[in-house]
């Protein structure tokens, strides 16, 4: 969960070393968010799914991958199209006790994002940890 720890010894040439393993606690539901926050409502509806599951008392983890990582950039609020944006939903995660939030390292790297710039405290995870996260959750949902 500690972003700074995750970034210790960060070395652009070897992404694997920037990663930490996800928190040992496994969850019931893993929601994978792979679509950008604007342009389609998939990411927002995936987040809605996560909030509802948490409201029903399920242990929920989130994994941002690919274009989904853009949601963690500051400023993803209401835009010119009148879409709600995803930032307000992200701000509610803590209230719903969703604190296992993972971001795939290679996606961040590819998009030129730094975990220190993101709006949430996240675990930056490598591909092996993504596998582990998928295997350790009872239910995995892809949005």
């Amino acid at each position: 969960m500690n972003v700074n720890k995750a970034n210790e010894g960060m070395n652009d040439s070897n992404i694997a070393h920037t990663s930490i393993t996800p928190p040992s606690a496994t969850g019931e539901l893993l929601v994978i968010l792979g679509h950008a926050p604007h342009g389609s409502s998939l990411l927002r509806e995936g987040l809605d799914m996560a909030l509802v599951a948490a409201a029903f008392g399920r242990r929920v983890s989130l994994l941002f991958m690919g274009q989904g990582c853009w949601a963690l950039q500051p400023g993803q609020g209401e835009g010119a199209l009148g879409q709600k944006g995803t930032q307000s939903t992200l701000e509610m995660l803590e209230m719903y006790d969703i604190d296992n939030i993972m971001v795939e390292a290679e996606s961040l790297e590819r998009l030129g994002l730094e975990s220190s710039d993101l709006v949430l405290s996240v675990s930056v995870v490598d591909a092996a940890s993504v596998q582990q996260a998928i295997a350790s959750h009872t239910l995995v949902m892809n949005f």
Binding site: L29, M49, V52, A53
Partner: peptide, 9 residues
């Protein structure tokens, strides 16, 4: 959406 969570589990 609670029905979807239940279905999945």
């Amino acid at each position: 959406l609670g029905q979807l969570v239940d279905l999945g589990l």
